[in-house]
Nucleic acid binder design. Structure first.
Lengths: 207, 207, 207, 207
DNA sequence: CATGAATGAGCTTTCATTCAT
DNA sequence: TATGAATGAAAGCTCATTCAT
């Protein structure tokens, strides 16, 4: 994970972050008290505020590294890779993208749950989150779209629509599998295949 | 909106519900205090507890009518209608469904936002919400799916996948248009058309 | 004591004011905790904040009525009285003034101690206090000075100097007798006489 | 300034004293945190406690040198000087005393403000301060009074009254000029003259 | 000597809820 | 039925102080 300022966290501080992440995920940010975090992290409550200054500061320190890597640098290279002339079709692109990003989302699922919880309401967090999406990576994505469109392999819809169709389908997948029904034993391979098929067909131009 | 037990709310009680709905939507349930609700509703704090017994009671009284109508009775009739032999194709089904449900979600967007906020975390609310989805309507929907599948107009995927693809795409649409970027002036007609196209193509069997 | 808005305080609220006054006087505002006040007043801590909103709000509610009566309305009548042509000399004026004001200060000594404690530091309290001194009473005082000066019974010094000499001597008296050495049994009658003599002689023009 | 134990303070320690003096003066002892002092002094919080042991220790280290010099050694010599047979009158004595002490108070005004803040409340500081006034110097002062009284140049009042009249007038002067209205441009020469005149006349025996 | 992470008691304030009026 | 004063638990946060490095 990319971290701009890799300031070393002490063992106790790391333990606070871990405890907070766990509690925020299970109970939500607003329903978790700093006392609870301190207790879980086996740290004094004062220590939390010494380093993180406030409860919101703690939330940001948890969310920030994630925000900086929603579209990580590697994606750019990845997308460059898919731009080479010999790619087969739209499906290859979607498949690579889905598999790579799904892994990433799945790994950081807990943090995403928190992020989603904050994103819902009209507070300042929303803008913070939206602004944190690096523009250069987005433009790399759209360049990709346009190339595919030039080769008539992708529908001629606005970029934001294509973005949305891809992401909402992905997020729906994650929500169903890991939040709403985590107890079900899914056949992930088959599920992912259908996911890729649905998006690919949905975005393929009709002749 | 359907209300199973249409217990008359006094003017003051209605004003409490309205105030709470507004505040819960903007700030979230956990971040809204009963004092704030009382103030906004121009009612004494005691009055809230007189009728709603607790803060959670108030939340339920807001959410309940919605839960009872996620798949309202009319939908059943609607799906019955689409079952008549002379429907044209998958697109007609998706189009009717999307348009009808989208209106409904949009109308009750505020309450859905609250519901989503509660749904994210692993509290008792999740089961309450899931259980509230009436089974007979779901079975009407699946019956619909199976009919379309028999006519080779719908992919042969598990029902829950088809459900998910439809709903996540719809919810993504609502989130982008009304929560993340409500200030943008969208061309709703064109947007809905692409929405229907994406789902339809995504769910059409490949020859 | 004059109270512009005589909003009725409940018994418990009055008990909070009494307890706070006592504790602020003994230990100072900053060294008194709201918990301590609640305990002394036999009231829950929440009740303090329900009515007084904050600790500073409580301080102001204690200080305000005093500020409105540092120079009470009666003083004006008093000073009018001394303006009648047949007063004997400066001493009569000083004596009346000292005795009347000394009683007043002594009665409200506890509150004055708090006020002094806040006055020392450069916070917004200073201006609040200074502005609360009613100008019409000050002008009545200075008119008095000028009359005495016209009759060559008072030194021709600036008003603020005369004010200061009178008040600092009075305050020094109060400080020594009631704050620094409250345990000494003073002969108040003789003490006051010397107080009046000192000021009178100090302000009598030299021939 | 006289310092009985002139223990060398390191640069950092001196910087702590300076920062604390400034902050205590502006915000008061109780409202100043050790963290704030450390920050202002650009020193770690631990360092403050290394040398000063506690926050109160720091306060005492600031106040102590002052206490030891309210009546400094030179005053004794000064008073000896005024005892020689060729002094003119009471005014010379008062004038010399006032001018010398006023300078001293003015120089250390900030510390006095702190001292006053602590003196107001009935804590252990009061006794500490009162006990710190060296008795031999006081007795030198009273000897002075008695000499003047023997020559009928000073009123036959108790020593503590004379002390009080002198000091409260002085303190009132300082308070008005440097605390209450520091922004006014005073004519200090004329002001001091009136100050001396007021005290002298007030303490001169009436024939 | 100096640092600053760590502490835990205590701070002011807010909370949902109760109950006498 | 409606009010709002009263409650006490718990909230987020600050405090002076300690101690390993």
């Amino acid at each position: 994970m990319i971290n701009e300022k890799p300031e070393k966290l002490t063992f106790k501080q790391q333990s606070v972050v871990t405890a907070a992440l766990k509690l925020f995920t299970v109970k939500g940010y607003a329903n978790t008290s700093t006392k609870e975090i301190a207790l879980t992290a086996k740290v004094s409550e004062g220590s939390i505020f010494r380093h993180f200054h406030s409860k919101e500061g703690l939330l940001l320190e948890i969310i920030n590294p994630l925000l900086n890597s929603i579209f990580p640098a590697e994606l750019y290279e990845f997308s460059q890779m898919t731009l080479v002339p010999d790619y087969k079709d739209l499906k290859t692109f979607i498949s690579r993208f889905i598999n790579e990003r799904l892994d990433y989302f799945q790994t950081n699922l807990e943090t995403f749950r928190i992020l989603l919880g904050e994103l819902i309401y009209a507070n300042n967090m929303r803008d913070k989150i939206l602004q944190s999406i690096p523009q250069d990576v987005i433009s790399a994505m759209t360049k990709q779209f346009h190339d595919l469109q030039n080769k008539h392999l992708l529908v001629e819809w606005p970029d934001y629509d294509i973005f949305r169709f891809i992401f909402s389908t992905m997020i729906g997948y994650l929500a169903q599998h890991f939040i709403l029904f985590p107890e079900i034993h899914w056949n992930e391979t088959a599920e992912k295949e259908r996911l890729v098929d649905f998006i690919t067909q949905g975005l393929t131009p009709v002749k």
